[in-house]
């Protein structure tokens, strides 16, 4: 990550816009309380925390720069969504779909864009229209499976 992903401008810009970056070396004894607190088990271990320390999103595993940037933005959008900041969440999901429409995380952005709009407006037809578009655009995505209820 330090050698390939983090040096890329798109990644650095996404982090700087939304986050305070914190790196912890899991081999250091001083890190143990934090590793226990967050039940750390595997690296790369990426979390989005609110300022109080609550975890709002997480993932494991390496991502190349042009997958990491949209994944980070979706993570930040989800953090806003969980804090019921629906406009902020929706704007970031829309940005991901505009700038990274073929990224691995794009279907998730599509799914939760509908959720963020619905939670703000309670317009069920809007949600169903969004999810119908998700199904057409990403027919084999797990998020298409998840929108069937």
């Amino acid at each position: 990550m330090d050698a390939v992903t983090y040096p890329q401008n798109a990644v650095g810009e996404a982090i700087a816009a939304h986050c305070v970056p914190l790196q912890i070396d899991n081999s250091q004894a001083s890190a143990e309380p934090l590793l226990q607190k967050y039940r750390h088990i595997w690296t790369p271990d990426i979390r989005i925390l609110e300022a109080g320390g609550n975890e709002l999103y997480r993932w494991n595993g390496y991502l190349p720069p042009f997958e990491f940037a949209p994944q980070l933005l979706v993570a930040v959008a989800h953090a806003h969504l969980r804090l019921k900041q629906f406009d902020a969440a929706g704007e970031i999901y829309e940005d991901v779909l505009k700038r990274f429409p073929t990224s691995l995380v794009a279907p998730e952005a599509f799914y939760f864009l509908g959720v963020s709009r619905y939670r703000k407006t309670h317009e069920a037809n809007e949600l169903l229209r969004n999810w119908h578009e998700l199904e057409k655009t990403f027919p084999s995505s797990e998020w298409t499976v998840k929108q069937n209820f």
């Binding site: 912890i24 934090l34 690296t43 990426i46």
Partner: peptide, 30 residues
């Protein structure tokens, strides 16, 4: 270039002050 912090307390304090989230990256040096 990313200006990484290495102190949890400093990162959460700065996030609170700046109105941002903390991006926590736990890594292994090996």
């Amino acid at each position: 270039m990313i200006d990484w912090l290495h102190s949890y307390d400093e990162a959460t304090a700065r996030a609170r002050n700046d109105g941002k989230f903390v991006l926590l990256d736990v890594f292994s040096p090996t």
